[in-house]
Design a protein around this nucleic acid. Structure first.
Ligand SMILES: [Mn+2]
Ligand SMILES: [Mn+2]
Ligand SMILES: [Zn+2]
Ligand SMILES: [Zn+2]
Lengths: 153, 153
DNA sequence: AATGGTAATGAAAATCATTTTCATTAAGGA
DNA sequence: TCCTTAATGAAAATGATTTTCATTACCATT
């Protein structure tokens, strides 16, 4: 889906959208870069190669990709939204440690099996109880990263 | 701590801060109101009774209460931070369902025993593995609330 | 391959939550 | 009561995101 241009084009059109250069480029950046990019991060990566692509379009494209569930949007509390590609096959799902001092974000995948099982059970009960259609969840731990800890809060 | 003026004053001073009218008033609002209030929500509740208290002070006070760990701050993704009092005795800890359409927030306390046990185990392992000092966690589920579901996404 | 209807784009302006500035006020220890 | 200085409030500044609107370029159709 991410690798081949043809596939991406198909995917956009399948959702009723056009496959445009900005959309391809931005999706590419997300594909190649680890994670937790803000709109501005992406803009600055795109700009040297495609200076005609504007920040506005980055915002719009991120919204679109998020709605198409190709990316996840996170609000870690530093005032800017961050985005991460959802890889195929659900192998990429994970949770986060967030440093409340320097805002560093650490991915972790430990316990995913157990978390998944646990989450599934909770979802089942809560969605019935509150008649709420659950489609995703977020778990994160907050505290001090090793660097900030050693620097003394 | 929240009920008696004397206690609150003690608490502020104990942390090296002065006990002022705006601080008392804002803490009172948080005490009396269920939950998930934004700075502006609080400002509008305060204003009719204390019109001299400004929005700036609300922001500053919320920061302070958050640092003193009297309240929790949440970013549910609608662009404004929301706050909730942490009740004494840790009886109030809970997690959330967030509607991605209307931003409604539902508290749930089901499974807290199991979650707490599970979270504790994860914290232990992760804090060692990443040398990360974990002090809190947030769990929330996203989806469509009953109202938005019936209205058709 | 050329055409046309319209979705997508980009630059600039607008919006909105939050922060900063700075002159004034008022806690609260002496 | 007095004095030091933390806290406050109004206004301005900031910074992320959204809106506006004239222009561009996908892509279904010819
Ligand atoms: Mn991540
Ligand atoms: Mn809550
Ligand atoms: Zn850190
Ligand atoms: Zn809803």
């Amino acid at each position: 889906m991410y690798g081949r241009r043809q596939e991406r084009a198909q995917f956009f059109r399948h959702h009723g959208f056009r496959c445009t250069l900005p959309r391809e480029v931005i999706l590419d950046i997300l594909y190649k870069t680890k994670s937790h990019l803000s709109a501005e991060d992406i803009y600055f990566k795109v700009h040297p190669i495609y200076p005609q692509i504007g920040l506005t379009t980055v915002y719009r494209t991120l919204d679109l990709l998020n709605k198409m569930e190709l990316i996840s949007r996170f609000d870690f509390g530093d005032g800017k939204a961050r985005y991460e590609l959802i890889k195929e096959g659900d192998t990429s799902h994970h949770h986060h440690l967030v440093c409340r001092k320097c805002n560093r974000v650490i991915d972790y995948t430990d316990f995913m099996k157990e978390e998944t099982r646990f989450i599934k059970k909770i979802e089942e009960v809560l969605s019935k109880k509150h008649n709420f259609e659950i489609d995703s969840h977020k778990i994160h731990f907050q505290g001090l990263c090793s660097k900030c800890k050693s620097e003394g809060r």
